[in-house]
Amino acid sequence: MDWSFMTEYAPLFAESARITVMIGGIGTLLALVTGLICAWIMYFRIPLLRQIAAVYTELSRNTPLIVQLFFLYFGLPKAGVVLSSELCGIIGLTFLGGSYMAESFYAALKTVSVSQIESAESLGLSRYQTMRYTVIPQAARAAVPPLCANVIFLLKETSVFSAVSLADLMFTAKDLIGMYYNTTEILIMLAAFYLLILLPVSVLFSLLERRMNRGRI
């Protein structure tokens, strides 16, 4: 094991980790917003928008992220739209993640039974109040575990960004392997940096889950 090599290139990894976190973070956050909007449309069966959301989720979930990225990065310029690698990464992740988020938020909303809603309505609560005080708090609790899974999944998916020459962790690792053939060291560093990013996310979500389960059996 070449430790000096690892210490030498640690700052480079740290810089690419920053890019992974930044692009991954923004993309995941936008995916979350997209997911919330789509789940709301699906839950209230809003006409027209609902059909659009359905087409979007099928398209998004049944095509690989790398294909989506290639389309954005190599396809769009042919139509005169040139996007930077960073923007492609963010848009691609949002497009992919939005559907996963939408499905899990929709499922979480659906866990709240019809009888709970009727119970709220029979107390005179308006539709808004029913959502605000009974449906959303219960759905939020149900949504935490799948949300955690989605966030981790999306952050890991950033590893294909290198295909559109975004200088993320994977890109740096491939670059260094190509130059120095220190495969073992580089792969260990790569795995370590991904862990460094993802473990705190896992921990954060389990804390959140525990907090939301307070007072419950």
């Binding site: 119970s119 107390l123 005080y133 009974t134 219960q138």
Partner: peptide
């Protein structure tokens, strides 16, 4: 209702106060 349908995200008191406070 038959199945009570209390709101599991609220305490007994919060369940009872929801409607008088928010609706009435």
């Amino acid at each position: 209702f038959q199945n009570y349908d209390l709101f599991p995200n609220m305490t007994v008191l919060q369940n009872i106060l929801l409607s008088p406070v928010k609706v009435q």
